[in-house]
Design a protein around this nucleic acid. Structure first.
Lengths: 208, 208, 208, 208
DNA sequence: GATGAATGAGCCTTCATTCAT
DNA sequence: GATGAATGAAGGCTCATTCAT
């Protein structure tokens, strides 16, 4: 009985199993929604069998919830790297650059879809999303704008309004860029051009 | 078989049946999406039996498509009453007022959901929506903006960009107003206030 | 992660494994039946893992069969200590005392359940049970009764009939005593009283 | 296409559907127990499709419960035709004859199985069975016996004990008769002979 | 030997669709 | 035209069984 010692012992790390499944769930739920997605497809996409999903999640709905929750959390964590200092205008530009990168991320568009179409069936997730994403984002932006107003860089405007406008413009534009072919006016434009137009428009609205 | 004879038996005119069903479909599909909706619920909401739906629509998907299509058409028709004349700024304000009324309509929010979450499974509907709604809207707005630029009322800006920005701001704000309780910064604001802020912001971005 | 090495790690002797498992199987199958029992539960009850069961039994059904068979064998072995001699009446009383103790045993009630509800799916076990339990019991009792009839202690009666009656009365009464709370007439009676009533009734039926 | 003409066209009365299903459930659950039975088999036996069962019963367990409950009720109703009058001994004989007929009924043996093996998972059904079957039966028998003791036809004996003994002997014997081939001592006996032996034995135990 | 993560066949349950009335 | 009972394919979920460690 040679004690079971110390081999690298790698075996597809079972600790990754839930992550694999959640990633697959993101794609499939994002494509088909909660009701329309088949567990079988999620399993196949994750490279596991149907039964395996049930080792980590008690049922389809719980998987869906956890997918939404964990994706949001990831986004929050990723967004933590807060921009900082210099002029408010510089800070705002940095923020917009990060935000533009984020909203064109595949998981953002999935979450956007889910939030729009199904989240109302999960009040606790709505609550979570509202507090952790919307409120948090609002505060961040409003802080920058307020500073800019104080320094005279921006015209006086309700900072929460400015926040809403920014979020609105960025998220919608990002979604449109994903579906560029259905928006004739976008077909000839790169994401960068769209971004430049966004920034130009937004800053124009804030200019003193 | 003594047939159930001869009472005048008044009924809602059968020509209205499809409309009843489509209205019910709008509500139920809007709430649950295509996969999540049950024909039985649509039938109950429409006040008819399950079988009746099949007298007018060959299957669930066709009902869904027709619901989407007819709702869009209605919106277009309703929007036909195009504003007109006077200064570009006046015309824009009139358009925005109509548009704001429209985007807060229940059927708009349903269509918005559907477009975001499920329309990509129906390329022909996407095509239709793209051509009849987006393009048409773009043109309408771009026309007004162009005129305003010519008259010097607005600063020079790509009219299609201005169009996109307007649509983005209005649709998103309307959706948020529906869910006001999850947006702390909206709780104390009426729809009218939100509208005023929108107009102020948008016109600021266009001012020369 | 220094591997968890080298404790003497005492364990129950492996030769006992099958016994542990069979005991657990007796409880779980007794509670839920063959189809309703989960191997996982049996494993947990036995303090081993699911896989371990398969080291000793090829599959669920085989475990069930072996559980039934071994429990029956144990009962037979335990019953071997045959009463003996003196008057037939004395011998009968001794037998009844043993039998009463046996039928109130937990494994008897499990086997009773299984025999009633599922054994018909296992003809060979039925055969085994019939030959080793019923026939053997019948013969034992019939022998005692026959001697009693010869000695004039009992009235003339078909000894196999008397055997059936005894088994019937004892097994049923024992089952009822397990569920005393559902039998109002038993609630105020101890097992001993029930036994006394049984003996009184049975001997009355045999009295010359 | 020879038109499908003029068959009496009677279509199994839908009011009978639940009965058909319950009858089939009695057979299949009786054979395999709750966990072991497949709805598909019940449906096939009932001559309907799987889905039809769900038009009348919300799920498998509910069907099982209703099957048990309704079978018990039927038995009670059938037993209502209470014997009556004349000597206690005559009344007892009449009762025994009815009871013997009943316990050899197929639904009795199913219920017996179910009661023994699965009813403990349904405390409310146990309650119901206890009150409506056991208690009711006990009272009926005890009444007859009491009268016989008063008239001196039977020896003094606790009437509830006599009741238990009668039930025990009859039910067990009936079950054995169903499985006659496994009981060598029964193979040469008809049900009537077994009945005669039962009566003889029981009356012997009661004789003054 | 022992483990328990993984598998996938099987069954319960739902619901779009049909059709006799 | 209208109904709703009936159907059965589809999909969620369980659990006996396997096997890499």
């Amino acid at each position: 009985m040679p004690a079971e010692v110390a081999e690298p012992r790698w075996r597809r790390l079972p600790e990754e199993r839930p992550q694999q499944i959640l990633r697959a769930a993101l794609e499939i739920f994002g494509e088909h929604g909660l009701a329309g997605a088949r567990l079988e497809d999620i399993a196949r996409r994750a490279g596991v069998s149907k039964g395996t999903i049930y080792l980590y999640f008690p049922n389809k709905e719980a998987l869906f919830r956890e997918m939404v929750r964990s994706t949001i959390v990831e986004a929050i964590v990723a967004g933590e790297g807060i921009p900082r200092l210099s002029s408010a205008r510089e800070q705002l530009l940095t923020f917009m650059q990060n935000y533009w990168a984020f909203v064109r991320t595949p998981s953002f568009s999935v979450i956007y879809r889910v939030v729009v179409s199904e989240l109302h069936h999960f009040p606790d997730l709505v609550e979570f999303y509202s507090a952790e994403v919307i409120l948090r984002g609002q505060k961040l932006i409003a802080g920058i704008i307020s500073r800019g107003i104080e320094t005279g860089e921006f015209r006086p405007i309700d900072p929460t309004v400015a926040g809403r406008m920014l979020i609105s413009l960025f998220t919608t534009s990002a979604m449109w860029c994903c579906k560029r072919k259905f928006f004739p006016s976008l077909q000839a434009r790169s994401d960068e051009q769209v971004y430049d137009e966004l920034v130009d428009f937004y800053l124009s609205a804030l200019r003193a």
